[in-house]
Design a protein around this nucleic acid. Structure first.
Lengths: 199, 199
DNA sequence: GATGTTATATAGCGGCCGCTATAAAACTGA
DNA sequence: TCAGTTTTATAGCGGCCGCTATATAACATC
């Protein structure tokens, strides 16, 4: 009933996400977004609304494709202790390879405090990661693969802080020994290695 | 020999620092900086150079007045275990009261990757905090107030990640239970309470 | 092919960006 | 008093900002 789009919306969002990820929100101009997506300004505004709305869509997509997907993959494919270990080491390894850090964390600092709509998304997603930690620890404690020294809630808080911290260090001090060391110590908190106990 | 300045340089830098701290580097305009400092643009440029140079001065001042000063205060006034505990709880309490987080951490994510001059300052200061942790742990282990389960280096890496993480959470999810919980758990890693052992 | 609808391309809106030219003002030393 | 030096105030530079009016192009339907 009308002229079809010439561009692939997903590809455009991917390109925009990459740019926001690398440069941050404020330092990314709409003109730059047009360049990397190949869209003219009217197409971009017609398809996604204004700059902030585009960013929100990019962030949502990123979150679904990255932290959330990783949580689900780790949790469904592995027993809880292993899921935690995989998640944590994956964060470290990605932090070493990609110094852009994590878009969620970058956004938490740069955008969240000034844009309530984005801030609430960020807070939600951080909470999701926290409850993922909590679930894993609880299940691991039940099956005996994770230490009962701390409550699941306390473990989750500590692990969340460690993961956030690694994403900061990734961007400012991408030192493999530092990042691997931090995550290794975080894992050691869980107690005896997973080979020890299985229900 | 010439016309003297009408403004207080320190006060101007304080005001500029506050604005950078709250809004971030890119989102702070020179006009806004002129407003809060009370300076005209020529005075500001004459006194501090361009925007980036001003930011660098603000960051240096901030670092000397805050993290570095806190490290020194904690380290000189208290035995190592207590120094660590004080430093960590102080980070948590400030994170709860002031949702601007830490200018060093904000800068690590927003500016450091794009401005090598600032990036190296940030990396240096992060390293200083890490070696502070390392020193404290080492001394505490010698006097028996800190667990020997981990090497000082491993403790320092883990604590650095936790502290960075708390500064992220402070800005996006300023939840007192979360922040106090994380720091409480971090302290518990140090082992038995300090009342137990003194040389 | 004509019509209606949506997407695209060009151009440019007002406004703010970082920064500076110019000149007046305020001091010191002679 | 006057020259020399630095700071200040006014004004505005060129350029980029987010965004949009206008007109054209490409489709589905009739």
């Amino acid at each position: 009933m009308a002229r079809p789009r010439l561009f692939d919306e997903d590809a455009a969002l991917d390109a925009a996400t990459d740019l926001f990820w690398e440069r941050g929100y404020a330092a990314t101009s709409v003109r730059d977004l047009c360049s990397v997506t190949g869209l003219g300004p009217p197409s971009l505004y017609n398809a996604f609304g204004d700059k902030q709305a585009l960013f929100a869509r990019c962030l949502d997509r990123y979150l679904d494709a990255n932290p959330l997907a990783r949580v689900r993959r780790a949790e469904t494919a592995s027993p809880p202790r292993v899921a935690l270990e995989r998640f944590l080491t994956a964060v470290a390894e990605r932090s070493i390879l990609d110094n852009r850090g994590c878009l969620l964390v970058n956004t938490a600092l740069e955008v969240a405090p000034h844009e309530p709509a984005i801030g609430s998304v960020v807070a939600e997603r951080l909470a999701e990661i926290e409850v993922f930690f909590c679930r894993c620890v609880e299940a691991g404690q039940r099956e005996g693969s994770i230490s009962c020294e701390r409550t699941p809630e306390d473990f989750a808080r500590l692990l969340l802080a460690v993961v956030m911290g690694m994403r900061v260090l990734a961007r400012a001090r991408p030192d493999a020994a530092l990042l691997r060391g931090a995550v290794e110590q975080a894992i050691s908190l869980l107690g005896a290695p997973s080979s020890e106990a299985k229900p």
